[in-house]
Each structure stands twice: as C-alpha cells, then as structure tokens.
Design a protein around this nucleic acid. Sequence first.
DNA 1: GCGCTTATGGAACGTACGGTCCATTACGGA
DNA 2: TCCGTAATGGACCGTACGTTCCATAAGCGC
Lengths: 204, 204
Amino acid sequence: MNRVVHKCLMATNIGRPLQFDPDTALDAAMHQFWSKGYEHTSMQDLLATMNLSKSSLYQAFGGKQPLFRRCVARYTDQFAVRMREGLAAAPSSRAFIEAFLHSVLDDVREGPRGCLVMNTASEFAQSEPEIAQDVAHSIERFRGILRAAVERAQREGDIAAERDPAMLANYLVSSMSGLKTQAKAGADAETLKGIIAVVLSALD
Amino acid sequence: MNRVVHKCLMATNIGRPLQFDPDTALDAAMHQFWSKGYEHTSMQDLLATMNLSKSSLYQAFGGKQPLFRRCVARYTDQFAVRMREGLAAAPSSRAFIEAFLHSVLDDVREGPRGCLVMNTASEFAQSEPEIAQDVAHSIERFRGILRAAVERAQREGDIAAERDPAMLANYLVSSMSGLKTQAKAGADAETLKGIIAVVLSALD
DNA sequence: GCGCTTATGGAACGTACGGTCCATTACGGA
DNA sequence: TCCGTAATGGACCGTACGTTCCATAAGCGC
C-alpha cells in the first residue's frame, strides 16, 4: 500500500508539543550511563530517571544506542566547555593543569564514575567501530584544550619551551584517565594526591 | 523425600573423569572475558571457546560469574608471575620498568584489550562490591611488585633514594592503566611512545 | 472549532540470556 | 564383569531485555 510515513525531523510548531525538556532528559540519561555504563543501564532505568515513556524515548531519541551516543556527545561538550572556562579563568595555565588533575579528588567523594568517554572506550573499543570513532573525536577535543593549556604555560614560563606540547597533552590525557581508573578501583584521596604530585613533576 | 545430593568438591579418582583440561578451558574463558568484557561475553561465547557443554561448565565452575572471578584471579596470577620473572631477569630494575611500560605497544598490534583487572574495575567498580574487592587485591599485588622494582632501582642508583617507592609504584600502576586505556581508545604506537617517555621522565 | 500533525501511554512481541534438570555415557575399583 | 560415581549432552524454563505498534490525547494553524 506504500503507506507514507511522516517523520518530523526538524523542530516544527505544528502538532502536539513535547511534554518534557529534551536537555533535562538527556542530562538524566547521561548521568545514568556515566554511573552504570551502557550495558548495565536498562531501558527501565532510563525511563525512570528521564521521566518519560518508552514511546517518547523512541520518538525523541531513536532507541538506546542512539541515545547513548548523544549522551556521550553531550558529556564531551559539557566537559570541554568546563575545561575551557577553567583555563580561561585560571590565574596561570599551570594552575589550571594542576586543578584539572586534582579534580579527580572530587570524584572519589561521591562514588567515582570515571570519565564517561574513557568508560565508553573501555566498554566498546573492540566491538563498536562507530562508537570508537565518537570516543576518538571526544579525546581529540580534550587533547586540543590541554595542548592549548600547555602552550600557554610555556608562554608563561611554567613549562620549558622546548617540550612538545602535543606530547604533553597526550601525557595529561593518559594520566587523567589512569587516575580516574585508580579512583574507580578504590584508591583513596591520599594515594591519588601522591600520584598527581608525581604526574605534575614530569612537567618540570 | 530428603534425596541426598552428593557433590564432589575435591579431586577424587572415582567416577567418570573430566573430559577437558580445566586450565586450558579457564585460559580460553579468560581471553574471551579479556577481549569482550563480562557483559558482552555470552554463555554461548564461553561454551564455544572453552569447548565444553553447559552442564560441564556449571559442574566445573558454578556459573558465569564464579567463572569470571576465577579468570580474573588467573589473569592476576599469570601477570604477576610474568612481572616477577621479567624483573628477576632484567639487567637493571630501571630497564624492567621501561620494558614494562613499553609492553603496551605489543597490545596495540593485536587489538588492544587493556588490562583485564582494570577493565573489570571499570565495569564493576560501582555495582559489585565482591568483584571490586578482587580488583583491589589484584592491584595490590601489581603495586607490590612495582614497589620492589622501584626499591631495587634505587639500590642500583637509577632512581633517587629519597623518592617514596610506594608512591612511585602507585604512579606506575596509574600510568600503565592510563596507557592501556589510551591504546584501547585508538592511540597509535608513536603517541604511546611519546607518553611513555614523559612517564619515565618523572622517575628522574 | 475543526482538522492536521505529533506526542503519549501501555500492551504486546520476539528473542536471547543465564540457569536447571535428567537421562545417558563413561570410567575406576572390587 | 558388575557396580558406584561423576561427567556429559541437550532439552527445557523463566525472565528481562530492547523494540514495535496502535489507539488516544493534545496543541497549533486555519
């Protein structure tokens, strides 16, 4: 019968309007995925935290996996914004880098969830190429900001000018990822502080 | 009817003998879990790689989760043994530490799987206290070996005597964990080498 | 207020999972 | 050779999952 299916792909103001705020719902889903991972988060979990019905979730987000990818993207955006803001507001770039690493101590207080991007890398690196791509792009953004931070620190004289900023940015990403994993694995604040001190000493 | 159930809990030589080698089967399961994680490994996957039937698996290992925990324990044992052997055979402890970090480059060649212990931390830290305990114990063992390596390196004059060996051991565990995650996230060999160089520079 | 379009709630579906059970098979000891 | 014991294969089970579908509700433009 060639039934024509209408899909509303762009925002329009005809028809019944959404009865929930997509951003709020997305944030809720993001925190759920962040806390429990993709597989350990069930549809029921999502519906409960997002406060919407199954149909609405499918209508609005297309299913569990598309929703997840949007959550990762949202996490990346928010994290990048916070980093950029922190860097812009910091008295020195070196201070920002130190504060950035020390932020892992906040995680440990409220049940460490790690970094959603790295958690996703760990869960999907082998099995889902598209998600692996998303992860790579997210990390690239973090890397870029940290590279800018290193370059500014070099200009400010807090990191030797001859060091390779890209390499140090990679090092910081890797170190942060390791720290978050250690926090998840149960390391206490003192242990983390000790590791951070050694990590920072490599910048001198 | 009080039917008496006999459970053969210890190795005995009466009755039909096992038709598979438990160690071989355990190794196969370990590699499966290591590659795909707990949730992404199905019973079917396990039966296929282990080459045994469901009843045998349940009879011999008690189910999926007990099997998984034995795999993690086995991984820990093997990894610890390899580390200790490497340390014992190394011309200098510093050389061992460098080789240890560089071993992440081998991973990247054959599809990086990370470290089973850290992967497990990432997957279960929040939800399964018993497994989190296992993970903590495994890490403690790695930490201990690395601490011994640092102490020997100090005796050999390759690490300053005033550094805290326990702290440096934590740092190495964290760094290795970060490197493995970066490898999983798609970092290439050159990038990893650069990070390793910076990591090692913190020991000077 | 009517009709178009879309969101919503909830029932229903197929499937794949981990786990259980039992009849059968196979070995070792007497 | 027979018996006791334990391993094996495969059918079976209940459940929880992600997904689909449809009837109904609800705004907005005319």
